[in-house]
Amino acid sequence: MNIVVCVKQVPDTATERKLRSDDKTLDRDAVDGVVNELDEYAVEEALKLKEAHGGEVTVLTMGPGKATETIRKALAMGADKAVHLTDDALHGSDALSTSYALSQALKRIGFDLVVLGSESTDARTGMLPAMLAERLDVPQLTLANKVEIEGGEVVIQRITDYGYDKVAAELPAVLSVVEKINEPRYPSFKGIMAAKKKPVETLAIGDAEIAADQVGLGAAWSEVVEFAAAPPRAAGTIVKDEGDGGQKAADFLASKKFI
């Protein structure tokens, strides 16, 4: 089975994230980049599926030069090879452009299964897996917390507000995973060393037949008009429980008309 895992480098959630004042895009230079946490679950699931069913795991990332760190991490976990889609023309791409660019790269690479984390921690739109399924015209198996493959059919548990749906589709398909699906492995020392020798192919937009006028900030279907730091919350009242903490909290709720 030919599995492609899409991973994204994102700013560390623990650091302060900012928008650039010039073009109102995320300032990626100002912060440490880490693998989008949910993508580690996607890599883990891809590796597990490969271990169970054979095949190959290719990592695909779109992002600036420094995103190679993210590729190395996925390779160190055990992926076989990587494709890095990188081009200045891609800077500022929104979800629609990104899904278009990735779908073009995926068509070039070829796949039986595309695996992604259900969302990224920076943009958090949660739309990319569904958009990819639409663009690639393959079934959408998203928000999975369990995956089984049998004879070309994939069955997942798709998490919903009320529990989960059992959903089935034929390959090829797009799969997105949530964090309860597995426990991502840590790269071993051997894995880290081996990763250095694994092939990483670099693609510019022309290599993947990506039209320049459909990507980047200029092509974005939506735009940030303005932004500002959220005003800090006013400091609250903190009391120590002296046996009447519940009553005091009730007084507060009553003062706010909640009771």
Binding site: A234, V239, K240, G243, G245, A249
Partner: peptide, 15 residues
């Protein structure tokens, strides 16, 4: 906006 420093097993049932 309002905080109680204490054991939730005491405070929450009382609340």
């Amino acid at each position: 906006d309002y905080g109680v420093v204490g054991d939730l097993h005491q405070v929450v049932p009382q609340l």
